[in-house]
Design a protein around this nucleic acid. Structure first.
Lengths: 218, 218
DNA sequence: GTCTATAGCTGGATAGAC
DNA sequence: GTCTATCCAGCTATAGAC
């Protein structure tokens, strides 16, 4: 009829936390610490290894076991830093959101006209996908259940809000500005996907297209 | 720490299936062939089961083992019909492409002006994603290496060509019409993704947005 | 904080009988 | 064409030592 199975349902979510804001600044000194020394930095090392794996074989190739191997630690070690595999991915995605936000804010700051700000965002979006491919894949194609990680939903919403300001200057109604943001972001997203899928081979061309689509939609 | 939860894990097979008779042309006579009878229709039954699984848990939940269980056959049976798991998925994706083509051609046929044809396509694209979600997910988020399945590349290119005609009527150059197709398709794709991700909740609204984006880009 | 060791499971794929 | 039986590989997660 059936079998009884015991399942641990993690209750505390907090383990995911703390991803805060350290994007670049790789510690590129060699990772090879053959055995058990705690470098204290393992969390970051794990994140980097995970990103590498995504880069090489997509999200599904990013297993905790392989991440551990790459990091040169045992398969048990990651569990001191992440509740489980998905939590590791979620942490990465959150970092990705933070970096995206920074990029978009910076890109828009260089323009004054709202329409040009949105065009700059569209450019930056495609650029992010191209330059940070694994991050992008992780964010949109890792099959991660984002509803389980409220921080991610928040980060996504925050991203949306960044675009809301220029949009409000271009539309009278709330619904109008919301639709504008959605349409521009969707166009940029679609082109980004095309670039990653190989449909569009030339990145700068894709960026141009994104910008002109954004202007057209405005 | 966590909570213990008891879960009934159905071990025996067949109780699960029963779900057939879904799409078109179903053989709705009872699927209950408890043992070894070759209905000859297994290939289709497997495809349907696979699609169901994608619908329930995304591409990664679609394993050959589970597909076999659903279909009420042994895990070895599928190998007479598909070389391996990816081949099954690829077959589904190809069916999906064919259906998409039909839909887009039909949608565009109802319009005469090229711009309206592209808008109709954009609508139909979002509609397809919403109505045939598992197909759409399979096509764009199954992590399938399409370069291993030339039929898929062809089918994708064919889809592209369908849009090329109206685009040529709107742009003078080859590059121009190609970019137009890409931009319109990208906008539609982005909105479709937003719908599936839950960012955009209202499908008909998404379709409207897709159509107006398409018109704007034109 | 990290290791070793291991339990437990699931899936892919094959061989050989019918 | 399908089954049974089986093998193997790989991953997740935990326990307990240091």
């Amino acid at each position: 009829m059936g079998a009884l199975k015991f399942v641990i349902v993690p209750r505390k979510v907090s383990a995911i936390n703390q991803v805060s804001a350290i994007n670049l600044g790789r510690v590129s000194n060699d990772v090879k610490r053959p055995s058990g020394r705690h470098h204290g930095d393992l969390r970051r090392v794990l994140e980097e290894a995970a990103l590498e794996l995504v880069a090489e074989g997509g999200p599904k190739a990013c297993t905790l076991a392989e991440v551990s191997r790459r990091a040169g630690v045992s398969v048990a070690a990651p569990y001191k830093h992440f509740a489980d595999r998905d939590s590791l991915l979620a942490a990465l995605v959150q970092k990705g959101y933070a970096e995206q936000r920074d990029r978009y804010v910076a890109a828009m700051k260089r323009k004054v006209e709202p329409a040009e700000q949105l065009a700059a965002f569209a450019r930056a979006y495609v650029e992010f996908a191209a330059e940070q491919r694994p991050m992008f894949e992780l964010t949109f194609a890792a099959g991660l259940d984002k509803t389980k990680y409220p921080e991610l939903l928040n980060a996504g919403a925050e991203l949306f809000e960044v675009l809301r300001e220029p949009a409000r200057n271009l539309r009278n109604t709330e619904a109008g500005s919301r639709d504008l943001v959605l349409a521009v972001a969707a166009a940029a997203h679609g082109l980004a996907v095309f670039v990653l899928e190989g449909v569009l081979l030339n990145v700068s061309q894709a960026k141009d297209l994104a910008a002109s689509s954004a202007r057209a939609i405005v």
